[in-house]
């Protein structure tokens, strides 16, 4: 099976590889895995006080398509609001990377990872707010 040029580009020059401190209240971490191919994916976002994703990092152990899908998503989410990030669909990723049908599940994994990261961030904010009696600054976008 041949990879598209875009997949190869992301695979050879992955963007935003790395890790953030997941204990940081401004960081959301999403971890997902696909047992069928043994892939593990971690995607992290750093959200500023305006609720904008200002940085994103990923680490993926898996095939080229899984790496490319997560690399692409970190590029896409930077500068987006959390709600905008939640609208990313695996079909957009698959289309952009020209993934063949057998690799669609890799893009699904990347969609799940970004959603999990946003949810993690939101639950942290919710926990911080309730522990401070609801007076905490909200970095959340209305949803």
């Amino acid at each position: 099976m041949a990879y598209s040029e875009k997949v190869i580009d992301h695979y050879e020059n992955p963007r935003n590889v790395g890790a953030m401190n997941k204990e940081d209240g401004g960081v959301g971490t999403g971890m997902v895995g696909a047992p069928a191919c043994g892939d593990v994916m971690r995607l992290q976002i750093k959200v500023n006080a305006q609720g904008i994703i200002e940085d994103a990092k990923f680490k993926t152990y898996g095939c080229g398509s899984a790496i490319a899908s997560s690399s692409l998503v970190t590029e896409w989410v930077k500068g987006k609001t959390l709600d905008e990030a939640m609208t990313i669909k695996n079909s957009h990723i698959a289309e952009e990377l020209e993934l063949p049908p057998v690799k669609i599940h890799c893009s699904v994994l990347a969609e799940d990872a970004i959603k999990a990261a946003v949810e993690d961030y939101r639950s942290k904010q919710g926990a911080a707010q309730s522990s401070q009696g609801g007076e905490a600054v909200s970095a959340q976008v209305a949803h």
């Binding site: 971890m31 997902v32 895995g33 696909a34 047992p35 069928a36 593990v40 971690r42 680490k59 152990y61 599940h105 699904v108 994994l109 799940d112 999990a116």
Partner: peptide, 21 residues
Amino acid sequence: ALGENVKVADPALLMSQMMYR
């Protein structure tokens, strides 16, 4: 258990796999 569409969200399992990797 292992179908292509089966996804894992168990944090302990994913964390240990990530650390092994």
